[in-house]
Design a binder for these strands. Structure first.
Lengths: 341, 341
DNA sequence: CCATGTTGTCGAAGCGTTTCAACACGCTAG
DNA sequence: CTAGCGTGTTGAAACGCTTCGACAACATGG
């Protein structure tokens, strides 16, 4: 492996000059630059990242803590990851993958100076990683919104507004009796940030507008969907509008509604909260509020990169939800009265 | 951040002694070891990985090239990734995530000495990454089986045997007219290793045993499944046994079969090639051949670690497929005649 | 023409580890 | 009693890069 000295020798300059050509931190005369670049090309020189990290205290690596299994739908996770990776590449950074259950990993990679910044997914309301992250010399960005961010930066879809928006759409299309079919119980139980927030927004919107709103967690299985739908329909048979915030349960919920004699898009409305492609992959293309995983991942990287020098204050960015109407919306029983709202 | 010198001073030894305590490469007297360990704990010392990499030429990082989207089912990918990450941790290694479309990433990461080894997923028959990998100083392990491994190590489920086993199961349960519903056309088209191999095994077993075997690629959507199932059933209405090697299409294939009047597990057999949990998540628990993603990922790591010192020769490991019979198997029209095979 | 920049390059001092050769010490064998 | 050995420890030399300060060489304004 060629070193910077080899390049310097070949280009007949000092190694510091080579370094400056590479980093652009000092001006270099065009002829020198050319010679150096040629030497680099000829030798196939690649800087040794370890040495660089040692001298510059920058690693060109971002740590990403992602939940690799659990109740969360993997395809959604992947979108976040893809967003992070691709935006990181634009900042000339690679991504080191940490898993949820490797809680000590944060400290290890940070204290060992393996990463320049850390991005954390699947944040819970009271996340035990937060104090650890706060103590780091590297900046950290949370994807999600804990109860107390404690000086950390956060980014996410505004899930509270999402819950409201979904309920509002149902109301405006004439529904009074509505329901939220949410995340699996385990996800609810650990107060995963997004689950809580959709719940809160949905309920608030219902309460403020005299809607009857029920909430039901849902296992992402055919059985789980059946149980949830049946529970809702038995308890409140009037329910005509559903919000489903559970990618994996969605097809089963739709199937069960059909089995129970509901015709989605005709006598029953379903608003999905899920990524674009999931919404389109159903039997009926779903009216949905997109979860823009790639965008959020990308923004997380930008926020982290901005804070590398430690001067920028922390910041929370919530992306406004956008509802796209598709085939699963149906006018509700009160449609006429609401037409001008 | 405390350095090794700080620790040495605190423990009243030289820094090399601290290093040897950490690495265990030289014997250390118990009292000294105790003092050093205490100093480390008190100072919260963490070795600087960059410095370590520079001096020792080991990074404690494994590169993992994974396809982050494409036609491959993400939940399957995640299992592989999870296997890699967790086994890597046991070897005290972290995982650097590279994406499929970042082909230069391999060279960058390897030549920059950011990783000790590289694991590559989603290998194609003629994979253009293979020559690059072969030229590296780090060992590489492929998950999948290219046509020409070129001295690289490979590990995967034996998909050819899987195709055969699936066909054989159908034959032995009395089916003569069988079909393989495979990966999406795009996956087929780029000759993704596993797709090709299942195809090959399935056809070979059919040919050798006078089965009528059709193969149909399948988009992972309701429409795609409908098209595929209809095509098969119209072309060969006698077909009573199906092999489905396409996680995302599976539920839709099952749905379409139902719509076409088939009762899976009664008059129609379906063997799924998919992870365990996918097989169980269907309406009918599926007779299936498991794709043990976690195991394969873990084995890949082991193979890579074994080859760190460059002495071990390359090796190919194919895991034998195991078929688990569940609710989706049905006796075929020729069941009686085959009962003793 | 001199004082005063500007620009381009260099030398050298780190950055925090690992590891090699050397050595001090107490033992054992002869 | 000594030569030789194993054990535990050390000093110093890498490892390959960045960056600071210095300094020529040249241009600029007064």
């Amino acid at each position: 492996m060629a070193t910077i000295e080899d390049v310097a020798r070949a280009a007949e300059v000092s190694s510091s000059t080579v370094s400056y050509v590479l980093s652009g931190k000092r001006s270099i005369s065009p002829p020198t630059r050319r010679r150096v670049e040629q030497a680099i090309a000829e030798l196939g020189y690649r800087p040794h990242m370890g040495a660089r990290a040692l001298a510059s205290r920058r690693t060109s690596v971002i740590g990403l803590m992602a939940p690799l299994r659990s109740g969360v739908d993997v395809s959604v996770i992947m979108q976040f990851v893809a967003g992070v990776v691709s935006r990181a590449k634009e900042f000339e950074h690679d991504v080191l993958l940490l898993t949820q259950d490797d809680i000590g990993g944060i400290e290890r990679v940070a204290a060992g100076s393996m990463v320049d910044a850390i991005i954390v997914m699947d944040v819970e309301a009271e996340d035990r990683r937060i104090p650890v992250l706060g103590a780091l010399k590297q900046p950290a960005v949370l994807i999600g919104l804990p109860r107390e961010a404690d000086g950390l930066s956060c980014v996410d879809l505004d899930f509270e507004a999402t819950g409201r928006l979904a309920a509002r759409h149902l109301r405006q299309t004439g529904h009074r009796d509505v329901a939220l079919i949410g995340s699996p119980p385990e996800v609810m139980a650990r107060h995963t940030s997004y689950a809580d927030r959709v719940h809160r927004g949905f309920t608030a919107e219902c309460d403020e507008n005299a809607l009857t709103g029920t909430v039901e967690p849902c296992e992402p299985t055919p059985d789980g969907a059946r149980t949830a739908v049946d529970a809702l329909l038995d308890r409140a048979p009037e329910t005509s509008g559903f919000v489903v915030h559970n990618e994996r349960a969605l097809p089963h919920v739709l199937a069960r509604l059909r089995e129970r004699g509901r015709i989605v898009g005709r006598d029953t409305s379903v608003v999905a909260v899920c990524p674009h492609d999931t919404a389109l992959a159903q039997h009926v293309p779903m009216t949905s509020i997109d979860i823009p995983g790639e965008v959020i991942g990308a923004v997380a990287v930008e926020m982290a990169m901005t804070r590398l020098d430690g001067t920028h204050p922390s910041e929370t960015r919530l992306l406004a939800p956008v509802l796209t109407e598709r085939g699963s919306s149906a006018p509700g029983p009160y449609a006429r009265a609401e037409v001008d709202v």
